[in-house]
Every structure is written in structure tokens, then in C-alpha cells.
């Protein structure tokens, strides 16, 4: 094992796949000569050259569409969006083109493409730079949506995404790129659509994904001291969702809190909650709770950020509510 940053894990995944398969290439704003806005692609231009590590103009719709077309014609593009907020401009190509190509062509053309970049809040960046898109893209049949929470998962899942023959949305975080974690020396792949029990427990199941999972770890530590044992499930993929993992856990704990960085309405937490009342109804000893971002656009001031984001105290409250211990 070795310790690497999240960004290095992503870089290893891309570089290994590019060495393995000449049809894989990376394009996006500042990915080449600038070495990546967040240094994810550092050094890749030197290794692979300008044919395969390509700086684009600021034209998300245009370069996303070019990548979709390239994927229809046998290549395997990795599209880096500086953040997913900017990828809203490319949503037509992700949702209308990539996600539907295989179906609309009656199976003739497919899009093996990965769209990746920073997602979610990253400090005082204001409303337009702080959105989380898990539920947006999870809503769309034809896509797969991956939400890694640590360097190990990020590398294994990105390699799986690059090798996948369907279009994949890969949601990272500016706040996670510097996170360190252990990964094996050699190659490994983590399958898409398989959740991971990050912490075993018996009293309450906490379901989460992405960088907000850190709040769950912190809360679980504190709750442990109060004699409450939390099982933490990292979904890792939000389309498809590994429902079985969640249901099995809840059958054991009989209680569930969903922790999500984004807004509450039509969210991953709504989906998990529906699924549990439908498929684990008789096992629930309390209503499913959730902790999400407030139902407001994200604001600039630190006091408003504190108010908006899920935090440890709120999660602890929600967990205790499922145990009727508030």
C-alpha cells in the first residue's frame, strides 16, 4: 500500500488506462499546459503529449459535444469539467446526446465516455459554484453516476468508469482533491453500482456518499461514546443504487438516516427513503430521517454556510431521533 492524495489517485487511474488503451484521451479546460485547475492531470501532458491531453477553450457545451461524437466513433474520452456547475452548460450533450444515443439509434451507436470534475460546495464560492448534481444526473436513464468519497474508491471506480461502455458521470470535489488515503501499489478496479459498508454497526444505518460522508464518520465516533453503534454505508454509485446493501443493513439495525450534501426535494435521500418504506417497511422501528442541505441556494457568508450544510450536530440529532433518544 501507499499513501496518495485523491487527485493522485484520479491521475493514476487515468494514466494507467491511457497507457493500456490508445483510444482513451483527456480534454477540458486547463488540463494540459496548466496541469489541471486542481492539478489532477499534473504531468499527463508530458507523458501523453498534446494529442491525448487536450486544452479546450471555455466552451463546455462545445467540447462536451465533440467528446460525445468522438465516443460514437470509437474513442473513449475523459471530459474534465472544472466544476460540475459549469457543466450545466453542457447538460444538453450529457442528457440529450450521450445518455440517449444507444437507445435512439436502436443499439447502433454507444458512448463510452466519462464526464468528471469537482462537484458540491467548496467554501465561500456563492450559489452558482456550490451545487451538487448527484440527484440531477441519477435521474437520467442511460447514465451511470459515481460519487467516490476517498482516494482508494476514486481510483478503482474511475478505472471502471473509463472501461465502461456506457456514459458515466463522475462527481469529485474540490475539497477532496488534497485528501490522503491508502491505495495498493498495483492495479485494481472497483465495480460500478456496489455500495461499501465503511463502518459496521448495529443500532442505526447511516447512508451517504461523496465528501459529506466525513460528517458521518465524525458523528459515528461521538455516538459510539454514547453507546450508539452506527453502520455507515457509502453508496459510491447513485445510478444504479445498491439498494440491497441498504435494505440488508436496515433489516439488521431497523433504523436509517440518510446524509446528503445536496437539497432535500427529489434527492437521493428521498429515493432511499421511498425504497426503505417499500422494501423494509416491517423492519423499520422509526421513520427514516435525513440530513440534507437547506432548501435554499448556497450563500456566501460563513454564517449562512454553517446554517446551510449538514453537520455533525444535525446528524447526531437525526440518529437519536430514530432511537427516540432526543
Amino acid at each position: 500500500m501507499k499513501t496518495v492524495q485523491f487527485r493522485e489517485a484520479l491521475r493514476e487511474a487515468m494514466s494507467e488506462e491511457m497507457r493500456r488503451d490508445k483510444s482513451v484521451f483527456l480534454l477540458g479546460e486547463e488540463v494540459a499546459e496548466y496541469n489541471g485547475a486542481y492539478k489532477v492531470s499534473q504531468g499527463m501532458l508530458d507523458e501523453f503529449g498534446p494529442k491525448r491531453v487536450i486544452d479546450t477553450p471555455i466552451a463546455e457545451l462545445g467540447f462536451a459535444g465533440i467528446a460525445v461524437g468522438a465516443s460514437m466513433n470509437g474513442l473513449r474520452p475523459i471530459v474534465e469539467f472544472m466544476t460540475w456547475n459549469f457543466a450545466i452548460l453542457a447538460a444538453d450533450q450529457i442528457i440529450n446526446s450521450a445518455a440517449k444515443m444507444l437507445q435512439m439509434s436502436g443499439g447502433q451507436y454507444h458512448c463510452p465516455i466519462v464526464f468528471r470534475g469537482g462537484n458540491g460546495t467548496a467554501g465561500q464560492l456563492g450559489a452558482t459554484h456550490s451545487q451538487s448534481f448527484e440527484a440531477f444526473y441519477a435521474h437520467v436513464p442511460g447514465l451511470k453516476v459515481i460519487t467516490p468519497s476517498n482516494p482508494y474508491d476514486a481510483k478503482g471506480l474511475l478505472k471502471a468508469a473509463i472501461r465502461d461502455n456506457d456514459p458515466v458521470v463522475f462527481l469529485e470535489s474540490e475539497k477532496m482533491y488534497g485528501d490522503k488515503g491508502e491505495i495498493p501499489e498495483g492495479e485494481y478496479i472497483i465495480p460500478i453500482g456496489v455500495a461499501d459498508i465503511k463502518r459496521a454497526g448495529t443500532d442505526v444505518t447511516i447512508v451517504s456518499f461523496g465528501k459529506i460522508l466525513k460528517v458521518a464518520f465524525e458523528a459515528a465516533e461521538l455516538l459510539e461514546k454514547e453507546g450508539i453503534s452506527c453502520e455507515i454505508i457509502d453508496l459510491r454509485t447513485v445510478r444504479p443504487i445498491d439498494y440491497a446493501c441498504v435494505v440488508e443493513s436496515v433489516k439488521k439495525t431497523n433504523r436509517c438516516v440518510v446524509l446528503e450534501e445536496s437539497w432535500p426535494l427529489a434527492s437521493i435521500s428521498s429515493e432511499i427513503s421511498y425504497h426503505l418504506q417499500r422494501y423494509a417497511f416491517d423492519h423499520l422501528d422509526a421513520p427514516v430521517m435525513r440530513v440534507t442541505q437547506t432548501d435554499t441556494p448556497f450563500a456566501f457568508s460563513p454564517t449562512l454556510i454553517d446554517e446551510a450544510l449538514p453537520n455533525v450536530a444535525r446528524l447526531i440529532n437525526a440518529v437519536k431521533a430514530t432511537l427516540y433518544r432526543n
Binding site: 457545451l61 459535444g65 465533440i66 467528446a67 461524437g69 468522438a70 460514437m72 470509437g74 444538453d92 446526446s97
Partner: peptide, 13 residues
């Protein structure tokens, strides 16, 4: 939408 996509097809060529 076909304008960037078709251009991407050319990119691959």
C-alpha cells in the same frame, strides 16, 4: 446538438 457531435466524429477520424 449535431454540430459538436459531428465535429467529434471528425475528431476521432
Amino acid at each position: 446538438a449535431q454540430i459538436p457531435m459531428g465535429t467529434g466524429v471528425a475528431f476521432a477520424e
